[in-house]
């Protein structure tokens, strides 16, 4: 599965993201993302999250290697969920920079929507950033409404 042009445009908006992985016992772990990089072939993406805040995600990705990430545009609730196989890779300086950008953009967007800064801060934690490399196998519309759950994206080339 590949991220198409429409999704690329979506990824340029200020976004929030939530993440789930499944551990060896089949129990889902959950957390929030703090950034991402789209791969050049658009068939994969790196997903950044705080290993300090979400240790369950680190363990579950390592155990089962399956990941789901939902990105939402807070201004209009437009959302997409991306799923696939994943593995952890070492964190690089560019990941830290991307986390700073993502957090700043999300903070500005949410504050503009009336959410107090003090309420937002616990959700966007930059401590101990970890990176999961996701090979995309499924993309779904997740915007609330009748299209929720429909496939999105394009078939991989």
């Amino acid at each position: 599965m590949r991220i198409d042009e429409r999704l690329v445009a979506f990824f340029h908006r200020p976004l929030m993201s939530i993440i789930a992985a499944t551990d060896a016992c089949g129990k889902p772990a959950a957390g929030r993302g703090i950034g991402f990089h789209l791969m050049e072939d658009r068939e994969g993406m790196d997903v950044i999250f705080s290993g300090w805040q979400w240790p369950g995600l680190v363990a579950a990705i390592a155990e089962r290697g399956k990941l789901a990430v939902t990105f939402v545009s807070p201004a209009d609730y437009v959302s997409f969920q991306i799923k696939g196989s994943a593995s952890l890779r070492p964190t690089e300086a560019r990941d830290v920079a991307e986390a700073d950008r993502f957090i700043a953009a999300a903070m500005t967007e949410l504050e503009g929507l009336g959410v107090p800064r003090g309420v937002i801060m616990p959700w966007l934690c930059p401590q101990e950033p970890r990176v999961a490399r996701l090979r995309i196998s499924e993309i779904y519309v997740q915007t609330p409404g009748p299209l929720a759950g429909m496939l999105a994206g394009a078939a991989a080339g």
């Binding site: 499944t22 889902p28 939902t70 609330p144």
Partner: peptide, 21 residues
């Protein structure tokens, strides 16, 4: 006020994550 988050997993282990009103 603030949406909750629900994470589930299919029988094959593929997770699913979404906001809950």
């Amino acid at each position: 006020v603030i949406p909750s988050i629900i994470a589930t997993a299919a029988a094959d282990g593929m997770p699913n994550v979404s906001y809950l009103s």
